[in-house]
Design a binder for these strands. Structure first.
Length: 309
DNA sequence: GCGTCCAGGTCTACC
DNA sequence: GGTAGACCTGGACGC
């Protein structure tokens, strides 16, 4: 698998929390990213990538013989998940220019992204399907990360089909649409999110909603955001977070964690207003959300000064 | 062991 | 358009 230059698997995998959610598996020591992937034929394969000379090595295992076309489909799913197709050159050009303004002292409010430019950060781990990203986004709202993990694990365990390893994959829209709201409350323990999850699955399963088309649409981000906000349970944060995973970085997708983390990083005693956050990253234009996210996650990658408690 | 708070928000009613 | 209050769960915390 050919990767863009520069590319760092660990940096992309740990770009946000998805690698920590089922059905992803990440072995940080061996640098192996793996998961079950459902193919268009309905077969579920176990696919994985590891760093290799010139890029990444891809491996897939299935019950029975895997055709070349099936292997290509699984490989494409992981390439898509690693955002290998995303062109970050415009972001890097702008970030380099702004970095010069920051270091010259003209714009001290800009984030220090030297590490990100040096290591090629900016690719965010996605799911093989936009549906999976949307469901997981709903599961991150108004709860702790521990609860998000629990809800997503239960979705996979109770409705996902397994690959040859036996680990359940992510459920299909059809599988999720077939369950009543009560199931999401009582079995998934999703609380008030239950009707949102079921409605989303039903709309996608019945063809009313084509989330996958959002990857390639030429619509402006505002139009996509408006469509996402029309979905039950998708407020400003959820819509902007999904836009981020679609490679649209003009919005900040501020949540309680990013607000608190950025305030701490910048030594603010109080969390600034959203207007202030918008001002800090406005020079990045259509890349404002990515610049913000990279600043917020600087410490995850062992960069920058140690964060105050 | 128990009660309270709140976390990677959203929706509705009301002004 | 702005805001208060309700909404599920489960982990952390204080007592």
């Amino acid at each position: 698998m050919v990767t863009p230059e520069p590319f760092d698997l660990d940096l992309t995998v740990r770009s946000h929390g998805w690698y920590d959610l089922a059905p992803w598996r990440w072995d940080g020591e061996r640098q192996v990213l793996a998961r079950p992937v459902r193919l268009s034929t309905g077969r579920v394969v176990d696919a994985e990538v590891v760093p290799a000379p010139g890029g990444l090595a891809f491996r897939a295992a299935a019950r029975g013989r895997l055709s070349a076309a099936e292997a290509r489909e699984a490989e494409a799913a992981l390439a898509r998940s690693l955002a290998l197709d995303e062109d970050l050159a415009p972001f890097r050009t702008r970030a380099a220019a702004l970095e010069r303004e920051r270091t010259s002292g003209r714009r001290p409010e800009l984030p220090d992204l030297r590490w990100a430019l040096g290591r090629g950060a900016g690719r965010l781990l996605r799911s093989p399907t936009v549906f999976e990203d949307a469901v997981k986004t709903l599961c991150t709202t108004n709860c702790s990360w521990a609860l998000t993990r629990l809800m997503v694990s239960r979705l996979c365990e109770k409705m996902g089909e397994s690959g040859p390893r036996g680990d359940p994959g992510f459920p299909t829209p059809k599988a999720m649409a077939g369950r009543p709201e009560r199931f999401y409350r009582e079995e998934i323990r999703a609380g008030y999110r239950a009707p949102y999850l079921r409605a989303l699955a039903r709309q996608v399963a019945e063809g009313e909603l084509d989330l996958e088309a959002l990857r390639t649409t030429t619509e402006p981000p505002e139009a996509i955001s408006k469509r996402l906000r029309a979905l039950a349970g998708f407020g400003p944060y959820a819509a902007e977070h999904l836009l981020r995973l679609l490679g649209r970085h003009g919005h900040l997708a501020l949540d309680s964690w990013t607000r608190a983390t950025l305030a701490r990083r910048r030594g603010k005693k109080r969390v600034p207003s959203d207007r202030t956050f918008l001002r800090w990253y406005a020079p990045y234009g259509e890349w404002a959300g990515l610049a913000m996210w990279l600043e917020a996650t600087t410490a995850w990658h062992g960069e920058g000064p140690p964060e105050p408690p």
